[in-house]
Design a protein around this nucleic acid. Structure first.
Lengths: 260, 260
DNA sequence: GTCTATATTGTGATAGAC
DNA sequence: GTCTATCACAATATAGAC
């Protein structure tokens, strides 16, 4: 399940771990009745699944708040309601746990973009994409923060993901934008810069949430706040792509370009 | 010099420091000839200034690469070419050093925005602002990364800066945007979301540089790359604000809005 | 002011009883 | 599978000779 697309390279910091501890495998050497054994195994799997889930959830929170190096296993264990040793039982090392958290996040990242389809209407498709990204920022801000932190510090764990999976997907989706442009349905933008715009704007509301909140003078961002942000982002991005919605009061005001 | 706008609160992590070590003050108790003493003091100040500068530069790099918690005094000392103990001599604690680095950065942050003037032409003024921000991303990427990392993890050090200085400045500059809108010189955007757009797009090229580079298949971003990014960002932002440059081939294509 | 040597402790990881 | 007790180490910070 975990570690599929991740580079098993550099840890958060130079860490202790002189011995590469192998992942512990389950073994039941005790002789038992068959049905009884099956029941025990089933319960064991359920407990494992629940614990893994709780650990991953707590880890995402702590990694988001403190970063990879700043996070401590003790803190994660506390928030998961389990003793620290259990984290090592399930995940081996802190780095392994960090990669497992990241691996969960990468799925969130690719799925919305994969939906962009050339046969759809540009404004409709882009609006849906932006909404999906804004929903992700609202509902999974910690996932976004962990991802941002990983990129910010060099993407040592997900470098391969960026170079392979993401790059290929972006190449395909850039072709979609280019097709729209060549059909005259969009302004001629650099497709990749256009994606950077959408990513940075939408993720900003998760990653820089403190700044957004403070500048707006809010104690907490509500669902209504996010609805407003989303509407504004959609409007601005569509206009940036030459896709002004018809209900827009100002459609096209002339302006003087900057001193080139 | 340092620590003017910074909240002296939570450290990067729970740190050792049980004793609040006071900042060491200079003292010259040795009896000396007056001119000789002055010369020694002058040379001392010069050495101090140079060392402080080297330490701050190295610290900015290391804090950007590893984050606040992940950075080590030993690593900073290595990159500064000084023994570790000297860092503590000049800055006391790691947290103090981190705050000094941040304090340098805050200036960079406010200055370009402060230049926005209501009497100027909107497109010209915004173009200049975007260029200044893109130049900052190109020339001081590590400063941007340290700032992003600080916000990402809760802004425990610069919370006061955000709530006071930045918020006040944004309030003033939002009024500028609103004036332009009321004069019909810009599309009616939420001024603060408009600023978020500019900040996130421009800082993206520093903070997410690895991702930008990888998606584009570049080994390194050149000055020409940045010139292209800047031109695209300017075009998109101006269009988003309803300020289409006249040389833009697509001025205003109709589009279908998303399913509301 | 400089820098080696060291005190101290937070933290990742493991052993081993239950 | 669970969890207490413990180890080993790395990182902050300081003492004190130069």
């Amino acid at each position: 399940m975990a570690g599929s697309r991740l580079t098993p390279s550099r840890p958060c910091r130079k860490m202790v771990a002189p011995i590469p501890s192998p992942f512990p495998s389950r073994s039941d050497p005790l002789p038992m009745d068959v049905t009884e054994k099956a029941q025990t195994a089933a319960r064991g799997r359920r407990i494992r699944r629940e614990n893994v889930e709780r650990i991953l959830k707590a880890a995402e929170l702590v990694f988001a708040e403190a970063g990879c190096a700043g996070a401590t296993m003790a803190d994660i264990a506390d928030k998961a309601g389990l003793p620290k040793a259990n984290l090592h039982y399930y995940f081996g090392t802190k780095e392994d746990l960090y990669r497992a958290v990241l691996d969960n996040i990468l799925r969130l990242w690719l799925d919305p973009l994969a939906g962009l389809d050339a046969s759809a209407d540009p404004a409709t498709a882009l609006t849906a994409y932006i909404r999906a990204k804004m929903d992700a920022s609202r509902l999974r801000p910690n996932a976004s923060k962990v991802f941002a932190n990983e990129i910010l510090h060099g993407a040592s764990q997900i470098g391969e993901f960026l170079a392979e999976d993401l790059r290929r997907l972006v190449d395909r989706k850039a072709a979609v934008i280019e097709q729209w442009i060549s059909e005259g349905r969009m302004a001629p933008v650099d497709p990749r810069q256009f994606f950077f715009m959408i990513w940075s704007m939408t993720q900003h509301y998760a990653d820089f949430e403190v700044q957004v909140r403070t500048v707006l003078g809010r104690k907490k961002l509500t669902r209504d706040d996010f609805a407003h942000f989303t509407a504004e982002v959609v409007r601005m991005v569509l206009r940036a792509g030459g896709l002004a919605p018809p209900d827009d009061p100002v459609s096209c005001t002339g302006g003087v370009p900057g001193e080139s």
